[in-house]
Structure formats: structure tokens, C-alpha cells
Design a protein around this nucleic acid. Structure first.
Length: 564
RNA sequence: UGGGGGAUCGUCUAGCGGUAGGACGCCGGCCUUUGGAGCCGGCUACCUAGGUUCGAUUCCUAGUCCCCCAGCCA
């Protein structure tokens, strides 16, 4: 990406000041450090835009992509690939700066040996339960482990044997020797290494002990020459430990950790744990389910990288917890898609209309504008004939106040075509449901002809029955029925899932130009919203996802009933 | 009842001693062959109480509320 994020925020200001003061030899190096145990979501996008933006805007540098792969039991190359694909799709380029914490394992081990030599780390055999007791509580200091004062030689020997695979999982750990009475619990001799006889997707079986985040992360940053290590708020009280590790290991470089508030969005989930739960329990169709705030999900839904980036640049970076309204995200897709997506006509819930005075064997091609926002998009022809489909919502037998559309005796314009008047309503004799409309058209009112003589209050979209293509349309509603942050935490969060988040509408009729629609293409269905062809179209039925609806003034007057 | 953070329109966010700005949203109006888009106007905010000051959202003090931390997760 080349355009600067432009947004100023406290981190940006701080980095600019450091840069201006000549800190770090004038370099600005940031990093995006995902753990490959899940897919990227829009919260990551916020961090990505920040980190890549900082490096690019301030020093013309690039942001490192580093996989924080220190826990072989949860990580998987599937995620490594997916993360790279999502990053590229979002428009970011890390060039040759792709790293893996696992590539540093040997160096990390050497640093640990140095720590032991300095008497700053020791091997402990306390069980996890014992360690918890020894750690104390939030208000009570902890107490020293019996192993804390073992000799350097003993520790060295034990650590060596840990690496050699002589001990089972959980039997020993390497701990930092800091202060068991620290008011900051993170400093009460945190675990640096744990034994895990697990195959690592990159290092295979060459290691059976793996470094913990608090140890591997600062040193990885230091090894890469990262100048500003930006993370989220929950790591704020890990910063003293971050600094301790870098200092005591005598790392070649001192990165600075800075924290900001993660992104939350209304009516959705943003934690990897919850997203994984949805996927694993098959509560959604996969990581790319269009209802999810994952990058893959948003992409399949029809979001553009540009819209996501614009959103990230506009929400700002701060330190207070914020829940951003979904409407703001939607605003940015609408803004983007309005300018670039071709308009087409599609009828989601068809109602048959017969033009009684239109010749039965006649059909004509009407010129339609592809995008009124972009004259270079040109025009196309749309077939018109005697029998059409219109939207069921565009007809009311007993129109309420302010309803401008079709009703018995009323007139509307058919988009790009003629003014028609409803002269008859056919109903199902049993259910009373309106099954078809009889209308007459006025041949003098063809779109584009001199038309000043007559105005109608509404223009509606339509599709010619004989030329229509069948399609399925998927409408998406909020994933949750409440914001989890505002709900008692003891409740099982999945009970707040919206059972109607996916609404499949079959039997839709779309204009013939869509017959060959390519997967992933975005359209505006006139008067309805922005839609994107779904990969499921490959199974035979043209399928569209609604990215977002158009703003709808009528819906405010007459809100649609909630989906059942 | 330890430690670390944070409190500005409904929601994000700016403001760094000179009297609150922007965006989304909402409400009006204009315009319109998408009740879209566009345009114009309006709406509502400094957690509380003291203090310093000519003047405080900004500084000080004391409170209140919210979030995070007791994984061999990150």
C-alpha cells in the first residue's frame, strides 16, 4: 500500500518525536506478530494498519511480519498461510521481512543460558498447582520456591537436560529470578521455558522445550531491531518484564513497548477463542462465514480492502476501551462501493406483473446506466417484455401513509422503462395472498423520452420474467443479539447468538447480465444494497451475499418485521 | 483492601490554560427516473467535589466508576 494512513494519534506522535530526536539511529521498525493459531479479523486489521502505517509514513520503512510460533500445541501452518493471504489481500507488503520466532529458538536458548549464568534464572520443579500457591494473590506477596537458590551449575545442568529431553512435560520449567513479592504479579518469577514434547510445525522434533511469550517476544523484537513494539492494553503490566528480559539478556537492541486499546465492534465477537469456538462447533460455516468479522468473512461478504483500511484509519488509536458501532464499518463499505460497483436489477421476492396493453410477442432492449457515480462505467441493455417481476415490498394493496410505490390505481415508474398503472390484483382464493398484478403501461413515458409532462413519486426495479435468471441471495443480520461487554459474564455467551443471523432467500430473479457473474464480483442491486457473488455459485445456483443494504428512508417509516 | 490503565456528544475521536471541533448516528430541508448518492441546516458531551488561576476539559487534591493482571496461553 502506498497511501499514508494520515491519522495522527498518540503513538504516531510519540514515534515521530523519537524519530525526530534521532533515537534508534533514525530508524522506525515495527512488527505485526500474529500467533498462527487462528485467522485474522478486523481487530488485527486495526493493528496492521497502525504498524505498517507507522513504518511507512514516518521513515518509509516496512513493518516486519513475525509469526509468534512458540506454542506448538495450538499452531498450524494452515494459519500461517491464511494470515499471509489475508495480509496481502488487505494490501500490505512485508517484502523480505518475514520472520518466525521459531527461527530464534537457538539464540533464545543461548540467552537463557546467559541468564542462568548471571543468576537471573533458575530451573524449578514446582507443579503448576504449587506454583500458583507460591505466587501469592493480588493482595498477598508470593514466596520463594525451594529451588530458587540452587546453584548456577545445578541450574545449567538441569536446563541442559531439559533440552535433551530427559524430563516429561510439566516436570520442570525455567523461571526468571525477579521478585516473588512484587506487587506486579508478572514479575513474581515468571516462567520462561516449559517442556512440551510436541512436534512443532517448523522445527519438527528438534525441541522439547519452548519459550514463553514474555520471554520470546521481547527478544525476538530485539533481534530484529524493532524500535517500537506495539501491542494491546492487556500487556501494559508486562512491560516491566519486557524491559527486564531485554536488559538482563543484554540484547543487542532495546525496543520500546507501547500499548493501545484493541478494537471491539457492536453485536459481534472479536476474540480468537470465541471465533474458534464458532468454527469448531460449526455454529458458522467456517472462518470465512460472511457473518464473522474475520478478514476472510468480510471478504466473502463483499467488503473491500479499501473500505476496511479507511475504517481502521478513522476509528483512531487510543487507550480507552471502545466499542465501535457496526454502522461505522458499514458506512465505509457503502462509501467505497457506491463509487465503484456496477448497478444491476434484481428482485429478491418476486411478484408477477402483467402489462395488459403490452404486445405479447414484443420485447425490447432498454439502456441502463451502469454507475451514475462513474460515467466511464458506460451502459448496458436490459430486456423488457410484457410479463415482469417486481419486488413484493413495492406493492401494497392498502398503502399506508407515505407509501409512494405501487397500489391499486396508482402509478410508478419502472426503472429505465415506462410508467405503469396498477389496474388489477389477482389473489389466491384460499390464502388471499396477492399472486399477480395487472398493469397498463404508458408508451409515451419511455425512459429518456421527453418526460417533463408527468412525474411519479416512485421508481421501482424489475426483471423481465422471460429473461430472468434464478438466484439465491443471502442476507446477513447481526451475529449476536447483545453486546457481550454489556451482558453478565457468567452466562454462556453462545446463548446470545442471533438464531436468524443468516437469512437465505431463494427464488430470486436477477437480470440476465448477471448470468455469467464471476465469483467475488460486487454489484449494487438497485434500491436494495451491495451484493457479492458467493463461491457457492459454483454448485449451480447463482448465489449472492448482501454486503450491506442501501440506506433506506422508507424502512425508518415502516420498519421491516424481524426475521423469523 | 496489591499493581497497572482509563473516564469528552448515543458511538468513535480531537483538544496539551483562553471558553469544546470532526466522523458515524439521529432529526429537518433541498435535489433526485435508486425513498440510493449528493447538497444544506440542526441535535446532544468535558465522571464528581474542592483548589490554583483573570480564565481549567486541560494543572493540583480528594473521591467515584470502568477495564486488565494470580496460564507451564498469547
Amino acid at each position: 500500500m502506498s497511501e499514508p494512513s494520515g491519522a495522527s494519534n498518540f503513538i504516531h506522535d510519540l514515534v515521530v518525536a523519537d524519530h525526530a530526536a534521532g533515537k534508534h539511529d533514525g530508524r522506525v521498525v515495527t512488527r505485526f506478530p500474529p500467533e498462527p493459531n487462528g485467522y485474522l479479523h478486523i481487530g488485527h486489521a486495526k493493528s496492521i494498519c497502525l504498524n505498517f502505517g507507522l513504518a511507512h509514513d514516518i521513515s518509509g520503512g516496512i513493518c516486519h511480519l513475525r509469526f509468534d510460533d512458540t506454542n506448538p500445541t495450538t499452531e498450524d501452518p494452515e494459519y500461517v498461510n491464511a494470515i499471509q493471504a489475508d495480509l496481502k489481500w488487505l494490501g500490505f507488503d512485508w517484502q523480505e521481512k518475514m520472520f518466525f520466532a521459531s527461527d530464534y529458538f537457538e539464540q533464545l536458548y543461548s540467552f537463557a543460558v546467559k541468564l542462568i549464568h548471571k543468576g537471573k534464572a533458575y530451573v524449578d520443579n514446582l507443579t503448576p498447582e504449587e506454583m500458583r500457591v507460591y505466587r501469592g494473590t493480588l493482595s498477598q506477596p508470593g514466596k520463594n520456591s525451594p529451588s530458587r537458590d540452587h546453584s548456577i551449575e545445578d541450574n545449567l545442568g538441569l536446563f541442559q537436560r531439559m533440552r535433551a529431553g530427559e524430563f516429561p512435560d510439566g516436570s520442570y520449567v525455567l523461571r526468571a529470578k525477579i521478585d516473588m513479592a512484587s506487587p506486579n504479579i508478572n514479575l513474581r518469577d515468571p516462567v520462561l521455558y516449559r517442556i512440551r514434547h510436541a512436534r512443532h510445525y517448523r522445527t519438527g522434533n528438534s525441541w522439547c522445550l519452548y519459550p514463553a511469550y514474555d520471554y520470546a517476544h521481547p527478544l525476538s523484537d530485539a533481534l530484529e531491531g524493532v524500535t517500537h513494539s506495539i501491542c494491546t492494553l492487556e500487556f501494559e503490566d508486562h512491560r516491566p518484564l519486557y524491559d527486564w528480559v531485554v536488559e538482563q539478556a543484554e540484547a543487542p537492541h532495546r525496543p520500546q513497548q507501547i500499548e493501545f486499546a484493541r478494537l471491539n465492534l457492536t453485536y459481534t465477537v472479536m476474540s480468537k477463542r470465541k471465533l474458534l469456538e464458532l468454527v469448531e462447533k460449526k455454529l458458522v460455516s467456517g472462518w470465512d462465514d460472511p457473518r464473522l468479522p474475520t478478514i476472510k468473512g468480510l471478504r466473502r461478504r463483499g467488503y473491500t480492502p479499501e473500505a476496511i483500511r479507511a475504517f481502521c484509519d478513522h476509528i483512531g488509536i487510543g487507550k480507552r476501551e471502545a466499542i465501535v458501532e457496526m454502522q461505522l464499518l458499514e458506512h465505509f463499505v457503502r462509501e467505497d462501493l457506491n463509487k465503484r460497483s456496477p448497478r444491476v436489477m434484481a428482485v429478491l421476492r418476486p411478484l408477477k406483473v402483467i402489462l395488459d396493453n403490452y404486445p405479447e410477442d414484443q420485447a425490447e432492449e432498454l439502456e441502463a446506466v451502469n454507475n451514475p457515480e462513474d460515467s466511464s462505467a458506460g451502459t448496458r441493455n436490459v430486456p423488457f417484455s410484457r410479463v415482469l417481476y417486481i419486488e413484493q415490498d413495492d406493492f401494497r394493496e392498502d398503502p399506508p401513509k407515505q407509501f409512494f410505490r405501487l397500489a391499486p390505481g396508482r402509478e410508478v415508474r419502472l426503472r429505465y422503462a415506462y410508467i405503469i398503472k396498477c389496474v388489477g390484483v389477482t389473489k389466491d382464493p384460499i390464502t388471499g395472498e396477492v399472486t399477480e398484478l395487472h398493469c397498463i403501461y404508458d408508451s409515451t413515458t419511455k425512459s429518456g423520452a421527453s418526460q417533463e409532462q408527468r412525474k411519479v413519486k416512485a421508481t421501482i426495479h424489475w426483471v423481465s420474467l422471460a429473461h430472468a435468471v434464478n438466484a439465491e441471495v443471502r442476507l446477513y443480520h447481526p451475529l449476536l443479539i447483545a453486546d457481550l461487554a454489556k451482558v453478565p459474564s457468567e452466562h454462556d455467551w453462545t446463548t446470545y447468538l442471533n438464531p436468524n443471523s443468516l437469512e437465505r432467500v431463494t427464488g430470486c430473479k436477477v437480470e440476465p447480465s448477471l448470468r455469467q457473474a464471476v465469483e467475488g464480483t460486487r454489484y449494487q442491486f438497485e434500491r436494495l444494497g451491495y451484493f457479492c457473488t458467493d463461491p457457492d455459485s459454483a454448485s449451480g445456483t447463482l448465489t449472492f451475499n448482501r454486503t450491506v443494504s442501501l440506506k433506506d428512508a422508507w424502512a425508518k417509516i415502516d420498519p421491516p418485521r424481524p426475521v423469523k
